[in-house]
Design a protein around this nucleic acid. Structure first.
Lengths: 209, 209
DNA sequence: GATTTCAGTGAACGTGCGTACACCGAAAAG
DNA sequence: CTTTTCGGTGTACGCACGTTCACTGAAATC
């Protein structure tokens, strides 16, 4: 059970309680989905009385949407890391960054994967919108690559979406293997090969034209 | 609300009631996830009294697992259709079959996608196991293709998993666009391109060796 | 025809839930 | 110093839930 200390200004204390609710929810969501999570469980875990919940969120759905925003902050931070990678092997470097971030924000990624097609419509919409944005960002990143200047926007988007999909598959696989280091290494190896195969397809894409 | 007719032998009537429970659950699951579905809702929809549920399933989790089996039957039927395709364009033909099946078994596919990482552990495990099997089947299918005889099992498996992942992405996209025929055509076009890009990567995979 | 089986019934229970409401006390505002 | 604001409290309510148990009546078995 989390305890919120009593020090600080009033709005600071409110912010901390809100964060405690988000953290508690995320912790409990390792075992169930948002649809199976009760308001009372969350407040119990956070160490406040049930009715205090309403001082921060109108309903559980809204807490879910707030959690999506928190998760997306982590995802964007990851993309930023990948952008300033001085690696000579872009694929290996990107996968390494992905693995690192999934390990650090395990609960966040699990929530994202689970609720992407989960039972709460508002959360689904929120995740879909954010992922679409992420696809756009990746597409513009790809456009800056050597030898891709002549790609049209549609094809860039198509490849970017394929890569986002593959990335999320890898995240899922990583969450499944959890702590087993041998299985983890296998997942990483397969992910690198899959991306390499996609890259191989890209270098030959409509080149004959 | 479904009504189970009173004709037929006893075990036949039992089978029909069981199916009514499965159908009712699947219908209700279009709006929520399994974790958010109550036993009483399902029996209400099926037109039986709550306690009758226990004559067929020990708990909701078990109904969920039974639903997974039903969904997988649909998926296997799809693979069988794809296997006896006389199409000269394998990719276009496969995608067409996929689109057709998703349209026919929309609720089943939605359930599968939603519960794959949903809140019920037993169902998750069941789906993961079935998909792994599906990957194996696809890998052996691929091995029979012209020019893939020299691929080793590991690489076949890697490609098969990439394709299963891409396929599930397409299913998801199809479920999202639902009825809009223009968006649907766009999804189909992108899916074909993505598979074509993967195929392109395959033809150049380790060929230099 | 008598007996057994069993899918479906109906009433009743304890529980945990979301939410309404009046209240408190310290921080913020005047 | 006085007043206002407001995050958190405690009680209390009605409701839907899962599960129990004894019961029914027609089909299956003998």
């Amino acid at each position: 059970m989390a305890e919120v200390s009593a020090v600080g200004t009033r709005q600071e204390r409110k912010r901390r309680t809100r964060q405690a609710l988000l953290d508690s929810a995320l912790k409990l969501l390792e075992d169930t989905s948002l649809a199976g999570l009760s308001l009372r469980e969350v407040t119990r875990e956070a160490g406040v009385v049930p009715t205090a919940f309403y001082r921060h969120f109108p309903a559980m759905d809204d807490l879910g949407v707030a959690l999506v925003e928190e998760c997306m902050r982590a995802l964007r931070e990851m993309l930023r890391s990948a952008r300033r990678k001085p690696s000579d092997d872009a694929i290996r470097g990107s996968v390494a960054i992905l693995v690192d971030h999934v390990a650090r924000y395990q609960a966040h990624f699990r929530f994202l994967i689970r609720e992407r097609y989960g039972g709460v419509a508002a959360v689904r919409r929120s995740i879909a919108g954010e992922l679409r944005l992420l696809g756009s960002e990746l597409a513009t990143d790809l456009a800056r690559y050597r030898g891709m200047a002549d790609w049209d926007a549609e094809d860039l988007r198509m490849v970017a979406d394929l890569m986002v999909g593959a990335m999320l598959s890898v995240v899922t696989a990583l969450l499944d293997v959890a702590e087993d280091p041998r299985a983890r290494a296998e997942v990483v190896a397969v992910a690198e090969q899959q991306l390499r195969l996609i890259a191989l397809g890209m270098t030959h894409w409509r080149r004959p034209l």
